[in-house]
């Protein structure tokens, strides 16, 4: 009796897990499947197609006409810079607000954290005006500044928590050895923050990697456009060739998915730490 019930339990358990996995993954499988066929084959009554001939040329078109390499390079560069800046700035500010003795420390910290509540998209209109006036639209700064600004509050929040948990004795010893504050921050404290730096880096990456609202508002030429633009621009150009559109979508999604699958343990941990604390 008991083993029978256990068996039924197991079946229910696996059914739930597999059903949800199918719901989450099937649209993506459908996407890849159709991206390998020709546009005519899409008008089918079945769920998936077996392409008569695998059309790799869809991907070749997507790669070349979607500016894939340029946009990927821009995405990698801009996101890496944003991560580095967020990490450095949040360690500096976090240390000053948690460890240094001054009157306004809590006020400054609260002010910087307020950024978490501000909806990014409400700043699109005024920032467009500001960037236009000072001439940074269509430069890398138009993306870097807001990306750093909107990831900083979360970064700072996580960093202050971690900095607090570092035992003060280490810093005291460093002071005895004649270290200045800058050296303490960057050579004593920063190495101890490695796990939290990873968390902040992952959260910043996830926040900004797929961002396109700001990018499409502040940029006009392809020079600094990021990966989502491969898809955004393509739909107009190949509006009737659906298979190629599917290829460009699959191609654009690929880098993030591949990196995620390789680093999935670290990313899962980072998100869990970041989100539960944030």
């Amino acid at each position: 009796m008991k083993t029978g019930r256990k068996k039924i339990g197991k079946v229910v358990l696996w059914t739930i897990l597999i059903a949800v996995a199918v719901i989450q993954l099937f649209p993506l499988i459908w996407l890849i499947d159709f991206s390998l066929g020709s546009s005519n084959e899409m008008f089918t009554n079945g769920l998936l197609i077996i392409p008569e001939k695998i059309r790799w040329d869809n991907y070749a078109k997507a790669f070349v006409d979607g500016n894939f390499l340029l946009y990927l390079k821009n995405s990698v560069l801009i996101n890496t810079l944003a991560v580095i800046l967020v990490v450095i700035i949040s360690i500096m500010a976090g240390y000053a607000c948690r460890r240094m003795k001054w009157k306004l420390n809590n006020f400054v910290k609260t002010m910087l954290l307020l950024g978490m509540m501000i909806p990014i998209h409400a700043t699109l209109l005024p920032n467009y005006k500001i960037y236009n006036t000072i001439g940074v639209t269509d430069t890398i700064w138009a993306l870097l500044i807001p990306y750093v600004a909107f990831s900083l509050p979360q970064g700072l929040f996580l960093m202050t928590g971690f900095i607090e948990s570092i035992p003060m004795e280490l810093e005291e010893a460093a002071v005895m050895d004649g270290c200045g504050i800058y050296r303490i921050v960057f050579q004593v404290v920063t190495p101890l923050l490695k796990p939290s730096i990873a968390t902040v880096a992952i959260m910043t990456f996830l926040n900004n990697w797929n961002e396109f609202m700001m990018a499409s508002t502040y940029l006009s030429s392809p020079t600094w456009k990021t990966l989502p633009f491969s898809v955004l621009e393509f739909t107009g150009e190949y509006s009737s060739n659906y298979a190629v559109q599917f290829a460009v979508m699959a191609l654009t999604a690929a880098p993030a998915v591949i990196v995620y699958i390789i680093l999935n343990k670290h990313i899962t941990k980072g998100v869990a730490m970041g989100a539960v604390k944030g």
Binding site: V20, A21, Q24, L25, L28, L206, W209, N210, F212, L227, P228, V231, L232, M249, T252, A253, A256, V257, Y260, I261, N264, I267, T268, V271
Partner: peptide, 13 residues
């Protein structure tokens, strides 16, 4: 890993 995959894909896609 599977459940989280849609989250890393761009909203554009």
């Amino acid at each position: 890993c599977i459940y989280f995959i849609p989250n890393v894909i761009s909203v554009a896609v």
